[in-house]
């Protein structure tokens, strides 16, 4: 089983990395002729854009009710991601330990925010446009959250076994997989998520920086600086 999971992990990880590399090559391919030269990014514009990204400020402007769920979701996911780094970093850096308490809260907030987002879109706002892909991701996340919570609170898995296994993966010393069924389930869902992560993950922050730059330039297109 350890071998199957390891091969699964390497394959999915390779797909994830290679998929993004190809995507980035496509992004960077030769631009068509007649493109305005890129503007230089100033520090104030960058800092402003950073706030846009970290606070999801554009979403806040568009829909504050949905924003509450989305921001909670993204923040919880980030905290849990950082906390999970303890499985692949030895020794774990201090920020990973610092995430202990926030991660306990985020583990509950994440599924709650998913339910909130789903309910907002389907029941309260009754959106005419529903992305089935987004709902599939939402479902996968939910399953992943629930399996994580079960592992933590009702069917605890052996943390030493898990760390041994995950460290084996990152150091290319494939070991035996932990026996916990919940872990297996949680890990497989993680692999599925890894290959189906949305394309906006890396693209949206870049677009937000560009948008901030564009908005700052607009008043000077027909007016003197």
């Amino acid at each position: 089983m350890g071998l199957v999971l390891s091969v699964g992990f390497y394959t999915c990880f390779l797909f994830f990395v290679a998929g993004y590399l190809v995507r980035m090559v496509t992004w960077a391919q030769q631009a068509p002729p007649r493109v305005l030269p890129g503007k230089t990014l100033t520090l104030p514009v960058f800092l402003n854009a950073l706030v846009d990204i970290l606070l999801l400020r554009r979403l806040l402007r568009a829909n504050d009710v949905l924003w509450l769920g989305e921001w909670t979701f993204h923040a919880s996911l980030l905290i849990l991601f950082l906390r999970h780094l303890r499985y692949v970093l030895e020794p774990s850096p201090p920020f990973v330990y610092a995430m202990d308490i926030p991660a306990r809260v985020a583990a509950w907030l994440l599924p709650a925010s998913l339910i909130y987002i789903g309910a907002m879109k389907l029941v309260i706002e009754k959106k005419t446009y529903i992305s089935s892909y987004n709902f599939m991701l939402l479902g996968l996340m939910m399953v992943s959250c629930v399996s994580g919570l079960v592992m933590k609170y009702s069917l605890p898995a052996d943390m030493v076994d898990i760390k041994h296994f995950t460290m084996g993966l990152v150091t290319f010393h494939m070991g035996i997989s932990p026996e916990s069924i919940t872990f297996l389930f949680h890990f497989i869902i993680f692999l599925v998520l890894l290959v189906s992560l949305p394309t906006h993950m890396f693209a949206a922050p870049l677009t937000m920086i560009e948008a901030r730059q564009r908005e700052d330039e607009l008043p000077y297109l027909l007016h003197e600086k």
Partner: peptide
């Protein structure tokens, strides 16, 4: 992608399919 600038190629990937823009679209 031949007619798209690098920024526009990124924009195509950046859409989260959130659907928020439908509310302000006059064609919608």
């Amino acid at each position: 992608t031949k007619n798209l600038t690098p920024s526009q190629r990124i924009e195509i990937d950046a859409c989260t399919q959130c659907g928020e823009c439908l509310d302000c679209c006059p064609v919608q």
